[in-house]
Amino acid sequence: MADMTHEASVPLAGQPAGAFDRSQLQIVPLRGLPIVGVVLGLLVATIAADWGWGLDFFHVVGGGLWTAIDLFVGFVVGPIIGRLSIPARIEFSARFMPKMLLLMPTLVICTMASGWQLGHHLGFTDASYFRHGWIVASYIVVGVMSVIALGILEPANLAVLFELKKPNPNRELIAKLMKRFIYTAGVTGAMQVATLVIMTRIASA
């Protein structure tokens, strides 16, 4: 084992290879837009055709990814970002946040639109459904998550990206906004635990 560590030669100081050039930062990754367009087109076609498997697919895959990413970002990535140095946070955010800006709204709309349609077909959205209380609880959880994500998290995310585009970004402002991002990601992660409880409760009915 000791020999192996002697043989490994990794540069630890100086400008790292492939250092991020902030002037090239794309706030919305344009290459991802056609993919989003295709996904949304398929979602519309699935809903229009009332395609059962497609609705299931969009809801399960979209919801699974949404929940998993929220939990992972809230409880794993968030605390790690919080312990990074400010330059490291900046570099991480510049690479990470544009992708989230495109990915998360797409997952949310896919999950919600297909979920609503699915619930309608299965009778879950009907007020007479015997576990209607759980369904209403899911609406409330999604509502709270929407307010946190769209009211606090997403604006902070976007403001950080615009700050990073400046020739001399305000590090204090970035640190402040990142803190907001980290805390709200934790709260949405916790809300996703509630989603898991509700959805498994409904599925086991």
């Binding site: 959205t125 009907d126 007020a127 209607h132 369904i135 209403v136 609406y139 409330i140 509502g143 929407s146 307010v147 769209l150 009211g151 606090i152």
Partner: peptide, 22 residues
């Protein structure tokens, strides 16, 4: 104010959705 408006609209949406199909 935007967040307050958002909360109001979401609350209204949940109220309407929870009464369906009536």
């Amino acid at each position: 104010v935007c967040v307050a408006a958002m909360i109001a609209i979401i609350a209204g949406g949940i109220y309407m959705a929870s009464h369906l199909p009536k």
